[in-house]
Design a protein around this nucleic acid. Structure first.
Lengths: 153, 153
DNA sequence: GTAAATTAGTTAGCATAGCTAACTATATTC
DNA sequence: GAATATAGTTAGCTATGCTAACTAATTTAC
């Protein structure tokens, strides 16, 4: 039992160290990539909401707010902005007149794909200084992290 | 020569795939951690600027703005907010009266450490579902990424 | 040694994004 | 049918980003 306890304390220390590193790396990474987003002509919140609509399909405002971890009034304004730019379309739910269904337009999907392309290519360019093995490790690590995030409470 | 070309095309494809995964994982990770920050009583930009001052030492406003990849007027307001909360102190540079030196107060350092602790422990808690090997891989990957970021143009 | 140019920050004004509180309108429950 | 619950919106606050235009100090040029 002492052995098990000791091992789990070690694991916890390792988890803390790794959490610190990941936290720092993620902050620095996104700070860099954010600059590429400024060429997108829409703000980060609109961009992120649009990405949910494009990649995960139409949603009601409430679901979209939940997906973006934002309160409904905030999403209401984000949606208003996207609609003004004709990047999304809003329609009433025929089953429940309180709900509004939100979908990306073709223009919205195009804008998103271009912006995403820019960010990804910009990052990829810098990743090419790594070896193939290091890239493979990064890929595996990203997958582990996504798995943890999916199982998040 | 054909072989080299082919290999570098492969590397580029691998870099693009990995960039996509990293981008997505970083966005999702920080979105989760941001919620812990709301207990900090100051906004994300103030928190981030404070962290530079605490971990990297005093700075002029311009240097701080550059470190945070933000324009001087923006940093000017962030600094004003931090000063109002007594988390930093601002003094004139005796050598150059245009410059202002900015340093974290003890209160600022304490607030930052507590917030950081919260985020790190929260993330670490979820990372403990991984094996020790997976954690080691994540750690190595974070280090690779930080290296890439340091050499960024 | 002074006039011009450069550099460091601030102020003003605009847009986006986050929140809570209070509201409207529609569904659901009793 | 009245009370309650749910979905969004509106109003109003703070914070964060920008550019343009300004002040003040230092450096450069002559």
């Amino acid at each position: 039992m002492a052995k098990v306890k000791q091992e789990s304390a070690e694991l916890r220390k390792q988890a803390l160290r790794t959490a610190d590193q990941l936290h720092s790396a993620a902050i620095h990474l996104l700070r860099r990539l954010r600059r590429q987003d400024s060429a997108s002509s829409i703000g980060p919140a609109q961009l992120s909401a649009l990405s949910v609509l494009v990649f995960a399909g139409p949603r009601t405002l409430g679901k979209l707010a939940a997906a973006e971890q934002v309160k409904p009034p905030t999403m209401s304004r984000i949606v208003a902005g996207l609609e003004r730019s004709r990047l999304i379309e809003v329609s009433c739910d025929p089953k429940d007149a309180r709900r509004v269904q939100i979908r990306a337009t073709a223009k919205g999907a195009r804008l998103l794909q271009r912006g995403r392309q820019r960010r990804i290519e910009y990052l990829a360019m810098h990743l090419e200084s790594l070896t193939s093995d290091e890239l493979a490790q990064l890929s595996t690590a990203a997958a582990s992290l996504e798995r943890v995030l999916r199982n998040w409470t």
